[in-house]
Each structure stands twice: as C-alpha cells, then as structure tokens.
Design a protein around this nucleic acid. Sequence first.
DNA 1: CAGGGGCGGGG
DNA 2: GTGTACGCCCCTG
Length: 846
Amino acid sequence: MKIQFYPVDISYKTRGEKAEIHIYGKDSKGNPILVIVNDFQPYFWAVLKSELEKKKGFERAEIETSEEEIIPITSKKNSEIYERIKDINIPREDKRRITASKIEIAKKKFLGKEIEALKVFAELPSDVPELRQQVKDFGFETFEADIPFARRFITDRDIIPMTLHEADGEFINQRSRVPVFQAESLQRVSDELMENLRVLAFDIETYNPVGKIAIPESDPIIMCGFYGENFKKVLTWKQFNTAPDYVEFVKDEKALIEKFKEIVEEYKPDVITGYFSDGFDLPYIKKRADFHRVELDIGLDYSPLSIKRGHITTCRVVGIPHIDMFRFIRNIVARSLDTTALTLDSVANELLDERKEDVDIENLAFVWDNLPEKLEEFCKYNLKDAILTYNLLTKTMQNLLELMKIVRLPIYDVSRMSLSQIVEWYLIREAKSFNELIPNKPSYDETVQRRIQTYKGAFVFEPQPGLYKNIVIFDFRSLYPSIITTHNISPDTLNCGCCSEERDEVAELTDWFCKKRKGFISTVIEDLITRRMRIKQIMLSADDKDKKLLKAREQALKTIANSMYGYMGFFASRWYSIECTRSITAYGRHYIKQAIDKVAKAGFKVLYSDTDSVFLALENKTRKDAENFLQNINRELPRLMELEFEGFYPAGIFVSAKIGDFGAKKKYAIMSESGLIRIRGFETVRRNWSIIGKEVQEKVLNIILKEQDAKKAFDYVTDVINKLRKKEIPLEKLVIFTQLQKDMDSYTAVGPHVAVAQRMKALGKLVGAGSMIKYIVTEGKGRIRDRAKLVEETSQSEYDAEYYIKNQIIPSVGKIFEVLGYKEEEILGKSEESKKQQNLNTFFGK
DNA sequence: CAGGGGCGGGG
DNA sequence: GTGTACGCCCCTG
C-alpha cells in the first residue's frame, strides 16, 4: 500500500547485520508515523592516489556531466586492488567480520577533474572506519567515509525534511509509540512544507541557594512551566493558596518529573523547545530523573532522552525534534540583532518587544522555604519564560524552516548548526548533483598550517576617532557573493591551464580563475543569488502572508550565499582555499574603494568603511539625499551588485585600532533611533565582572550616545574612580562572581576563586563543583589569590581600589574614552586639569 | 610567556 | 555516532 507523509526526524538503528533508516513524521492526516527503510547501505569512495595526482590543476572536465556512472574496471592497478579490497576480512569481538560487501567503479569528479573511483560498501555504518583504514593502507585516498549514515541517506535519496513524501510498503508490528510502516520505496512528491506544527515550550526553575547556581547533584527542580497552543501549565510541588488556575500541584520532585513525561506524551508535540535547554534544562531534568530512578523514556521508540557531551551538551529525543532556541539564535539570528547579550530577556526584548517577569530569582529558594504564599509571582515568571521561548520560536520558525529546506537536513540538526556547517552541508548536498567527490576534512596538522597562513583582508577606512551624529550606513550585502559569481571564483577554476593569459587587472590580485568553464562553488552561489532575486521579484506583487514567507526564504538564501567566502577561508572547512579567499578580498577592496570615492564625490562625509560597508555623516545633507545617491550608484553597478541602505543612526563613536599590519579591527558603538546601542569590538559585560564594572560601562555608553555628552561621561567615570579611592563604593558592588567549575581538589592552577573556595570549606561552608564563589580583592602585595577575600571577611577600607580601577573600570570604558581622545592616565586623573579641558575642546571641535 | 581555567546561556 | 566543537580574557607559575 501507498502512504503519504512528512519526514521530521531521521536516524538509524542497527538490527542484526543491517542498519535501518528510521523516519519519524506525520502522515497527511496529521497522525504520527514511523517509516522504516532497510535497503540503504553504507559506503565510501576510494581513489588511487596516482589517479588524484594526474593532470593536477589543469584541463578539468566539463561541469555538465553530473550523473554518477558505473563503469567497468579499466586500469590494471584498480583491478588488482579491487581484488584485495574484496578479500578484506577483519574479525571483531562479536564474531562478526568486517568486509566490503560490494564494490563498484564509477566515474566521479574531484575539484572538476574526472577520475575513476571505487565505491566500497560496508555491511554496517560502524564498519566503515576500519574498512576505510584498511583501504587507505592499500594506497588509496578515501572520501566521504565520515558522512553520518542518516545524512548520507537523506542526501542520496533526495529527501527534504518536512515536505510531502510517498512511501510504498506495509504496516508492521513493532514496539513503538507510533504506527510503524515498512517502506519498499520512498520518494518526494511536493516541496510544500507541512503546516500547523505543534510546538511545546518548557522551562524549569531550580532550588538555588543564595549566591549559587543550582547544581543537579543536590538542588531539586521546583517548577516546570509549559506553553503550547491552548495550553499553559506550571507544575510545582509546594502548596500555596494564591495559585492561579494554570498551576498544578504535584507531590514532590519525582512526581514533577513523571508529570513532565506524561505531558510530553499526551500533548504530542511536533517540536519541543526551551531556551538553553541543550545546556541547562534537559541535562538537569535528566540528572534529577536519574537521581529518582525515573526512566526518561520519552523517545517515540521508548528510548530515553539522550545527552551528548561536548562543548555544549546536545539533547535529543528520538522522533521529536528538540530545538534549543538559544543555539539557533546564537548561531544564526544573532547576526541580525543589535543586542550583544543573548539572554532570554534581551533577545525577547529586541525580537518580540516583550520582557521576562521582573522578579528577583535569587530569592526563589528563600521564598520556597519561608514564604510559599509568595510563590505565585515565581510561577508567573516560570510560565512567562516558556511563553517567551514559544514566541521566539514562532517568530523565527519560518526562517529556520527555510534554512532547513535549503540545507535539506532535519530541523533538529539545522537548528543547532553554525553558519560554516550550514554552508558545508549545503555544498555536500549540491556536490551530489555535480557528481563531485566531497573533499575530506583537514587533519589536525593541516588546520594548524591553515591557521598560520594569512592574507590581505578587506579594506578598512580608518576612522577619525570620535563621536558623530546622524550616521547613515550603506552596505554591499552581497559584495562577496557577487564577486565570487562574477569572477568565477572556486577551488576548481583556480589557476587553470587555459586562462593564465586573461588575468584581470585588479590591484594585488595574484591568481586567476577559468573563464571558459564555470566552477562548482561559483555556480552554487550564482544559483543562490538568482533564486534570491527571483523571490524578491515575486515579493513585489505578493500578499502579506506570502511576503512573510518569501522574505524568510530570501533571507535564508542570502545567509548561505554571504557565508561562502568565510567558509572558504575557515581553517576547518572541506572546500578551503586561501587563493580563493585572498582573490575575493582583492576584488572586494577594488569595489569598496570605488564606492567610497563615489560617496565622497557626492559630497557626503565618509566616516568609516570596513569590507562592504560605508559609514557616512549626513552633516548638512538629508536622509533623502542619501537614498537618492543610492539609486544612482546602483544603476552603475554590475548586475549582481547592490549597495543597500543599512540604517540610520542618530549617534555613534568610532575608534581605529590597528593591529600590526593585519588591518584594523572593528571598534565602534552606534545607537539606533529606537535607542538600542550596538557595540562592536569593545569589551562586553561578563558575569564575572563586578557590578561596578558593568554599571560604569552601561552608564558611560548611555551618556555618550543618548545624551551625547562626553564630558558628562568623563566626569562620571572620574567621580567613580575618586569614590573608589576614597573607599566610598559599597562592597557589594565590588564582589566578583566566579563559578567553581569542578571539584576543588582537581585544580592544578589555583586561581583566586579556588583559593577562596578552599577557605570557605575550611570554615565549614558548603562548596563544591557548581558553587558561585564571591570574593573581593583586597590591598596588599603579591598574587591576587592571596588577596581575594570573602565578603564578610572584608572591611570597607580594605578593598584594593587600584585593582578595581585597573581590572574593572579601565577595561570596561578605557577603549571608549580612547576613542574620544582621552588617554588612560587622564581617566586615572594623573594629568593636569587644563590638558583634559583642551582635549575635550578638540573633541567637540571648538 | 605558556597554558590552565572560566565565560557564554540557564537559576 | 561513518562526526563534533570556539575564541577571548585573566591569572598563575
């Protein structure tokens, strides 16, 4: 029988001697389903090293031949080795033997060159690493042996997650939370995305003793909030009278976790989401569930929530995509945000114009123990976090879905990928239709080599440091992508044998690119750009609903196209090419300098320029003038290039910070009309700064940009410094918070927070991994750690004012004042008053 | 000056 | 899971 369904979550399972692909999704009626495909075999490619080296760099094949063609063995060498690979037989502990289950020979391309490649099949995905090693030892270069099995399946069978597919097969009986369908065949039938995703957002609150971040070993979960369509709930296990109707009381923490499972099971979400739930909520729930011996088997195959350790832990539920909003926002959305802090509060504020509930979360444990009647506001707070997360997902979902449709990997993967991974997987998918072998990831040594190679970067117009009003920013949003397309920049067109005579006359361009045959990456980029232009065209006559969708699609295409340059220059990428990147920047410098000249000729004051943007001060001109100028310049630019109006900013400060010969680093702060301040290149506030450091930076930027009064900002800082020296700053503003990450004994380097923690332990206080250590640096000589004291051990006059000035105040605002023409010693009050005044006057142009 | 350790997000 | 992880800053030795 035939069924139609939308694949959502795709993974594989080993059953006996076979790996099965498991596709969880929804059928066309909206019912959940598991479709199993078991005719897909793992494989990788092997190419003789001699084959790779022949015709190196020259006379490459036409890109048009794009089907993978199975051919008879032609070379004697290939056939000999073919026999050897066939004979591979590696015993394993479980009595299975690793063999090549099948070998084919095909015509493939590698960076445009036609080559003969062996396609080596394995029985199980887990056999591949050893099989590959064996084949390598025979003198082959292997390819694509590190493509995860499920992703390999998605690519080869041309799946696009969440679009309509048809499967032929039958329902079978198997332990599963959803009906299981065994598919004989599977194909995509439409590009339309599934609709009405059921989203469940959740958020936990934990019992956190004052001054401590809760640690799962000892501190329980005390609330769990949920929000979905027509659904809101807060679970908690302390009774109080004023509970709103969405609060449900449970017996204890164990019951709360069991109820959590039940809600996920009953709500049947298509997607679950949290904010930093990969790193906090889910690992925490898991730990507490383990503690209570509750099996967290919420997977649709009854498997437990799985947590992968890494730099950030990653949490997966089989069959239900889990999206950590924070990760998607940090990796993708953040680039278009003004806020630098990516807390739920600041992101919601900017994206949704909503804030978190204003409660003092530090007090939660105290209230929980002593004032349960006041728990209502914390329940409200808990629910609100879930609501904000839900709304953030709703707000950005279309963008995520469009990215997913372009990259064609499951939403779980795409939602936590960095830009370079998105680009890479897009290229991997595209490589298939060009019949190109996917280059391997560089070895560690290779990445070290790549890291030390440098090349001349973008052009930076050194700003006259200072504060400016009425700033307009123009930028070439598609500068690098258009350069890549226009000049056919791609690793496979680089320095071809046929075109060395036709090099472009562009300053500092050291390489050339084929003019006869289009490259892989340049073709991929051109396709992205033309698709985007087509969409923008359609948008002109679309209704509002379609416009929103098209906008998201167009943004996704732009995001990928814009990242291609950075990707080719990223040390860990598969399609790395320093020659390509340095050529792109050479062309880029050429075009931006042209634009700057034109801006200046049109009578605007150019303040600053970096890579693809020009900052200008309107002075006596108007915004309208700027817009008109744009229209004119765009008429003269090549087809794919466009200078855009990025924005208008009432105030901004700039600094030039030359670092050796490598160019200038972006350092500026600008304020938008809505009062949001965008900071680039300055130290940003961190949690291990004292309150005084944070406070001073925030106030200074506000005074400078909002009130545009540098003198006032300067006076404010000197005042704070004086107060610090006179010991007038209250101790609580000087406390430095540092978290003890591991157990005290496992430290080799004893930093200040470790020393303080040791003393706390000696005093009989409860400290351990996860504890927030609070300390104040006091006067004296020698190491910081010997002078770090507990707050209660420190008297008001004891703190080391100079330490705070040097390590907290100067780092937070020093650079800002440098921009405004102040020297560090002036801030420190070491120079005479008159000089200060003089500087101020220069600054204000008096 | 090298290298260990913390931060980000979360309570 | 046929993988996987960064870049910056402070402090100590």
